[in-house]
Design a protein around this nucleic acid. Sequence first.
DNA 1: GCGTTTGTTCAAACTTTTTTGAACAAACGA
DNA 2: TCGTTTGTTCAAAAAAGTTTGAACAAACGC
Lengths: 174, 174
Amino acid sequence: MGCCMATLPEQESETSSSLEGLERQIVDLFVDGVKVLGLPRSIGEIYGVLFISPAPLALDDLVEKLGISKGSASQGLRALKGLGAVREVEGNAERRTYFEPAVDLKRLVGGFIREQVRPHIESGKKKISKLAEAAREEPDPERRAFFQERVERIDNWTRRGGQVLPLLQRILGE
Amino acid sequence: MGCCMATLPEQESETSSSLEGLERQIVDLFVDGVKVLGLPRSIGEIYGVLFISPAPLALDDLVEKLGISKGSASQGLRALKGLGAVREVEGNAERRTYFEPAVDLKRLVGGFIREQVRPHIESGKKKISKLAEAAREEPDPERRAFFQERVERIDNWTRRGGQVLPLLQRILGE
DNA sequence: GCGTTTGTTCAAACTTTTTTGAACAAACGA
DNA sequence: TCGTTTGTTCAAAAAAGTTTGAACAAACGC
């Protein structure tokens, strides 16, 4: 795609963001959304602007629309790419790269699980096996039984968690 | 971004706490766990100590074991009660109140969804209906169609999210 | 009443996370 | 080659979030 589409000369710049009604509302919604997921506000802002933009946007568009620094925009885009929530638009002749949002829930949820959830489950598994070992070493038999029951319970939790994730993705994927 | 990229720093907590091996490991595990859920570390510490304690504990026990302030312990317990993750032990003759952890996953997940997830979904619904209205007011027909498609998509996401939650609870409840 | 124990509150101190912005590098055309 | 455009990096500043601790209140026994 050539340049910046039909929407045109964007009114006055300056003084932070130049978002108009609907855009502002969408951005706020996504900011809330990513906060719930424990991600920084700039991630929500960037995704929001891309989500409601009729055409792909470049880094500088985000800087201007949101009134954030280039550094923020760059890092935010990197994170969103990592989550699979944003992709670079292929095959535009220009030098600068344009981005568009991934908009299907399956992909978004999948990326979040892959990047934010799985790593914690993995590292948790290691810790749990160390726990089981520690519990076995308790000398008092009554306390040992109690500890082992508790460790076993945690182990069950993570096992069930691991089962739920693929199911979740399947359901959301339709 | 404390959250967006790969693995965690795995910090050991260190303070004037009197936790011994297994307790320490459990507490660290829960600290990591609640961090993933976006809750403060003291919540994880308190729940962890209660979880691995063979007998209920009172506020001052937590203060001593964890080396945290009374204020932290008080606030942490309040939050955990709100989540349904901890309950007061009934019918002990003493003046001080003792606490024990809720240990079934269904209850824990249910509390988290009720306290941390649902409120956001609710407030999101209101925002979405405002969004739909704003989209309808776009004069340009092409842009209007695009905006409406996007708003509709968000609406679908939340609808599906709302469907998944009870399902999740049912699966984890066994 | 008084002193003690138990727990809560909330402003200030502290900690952690996020954002900024200036320096840098790479790609391109002239 | 050089100047311009585009984007990245990272130390430091700012913002956000958490914990502390001293003041306060409530419940109890004496």
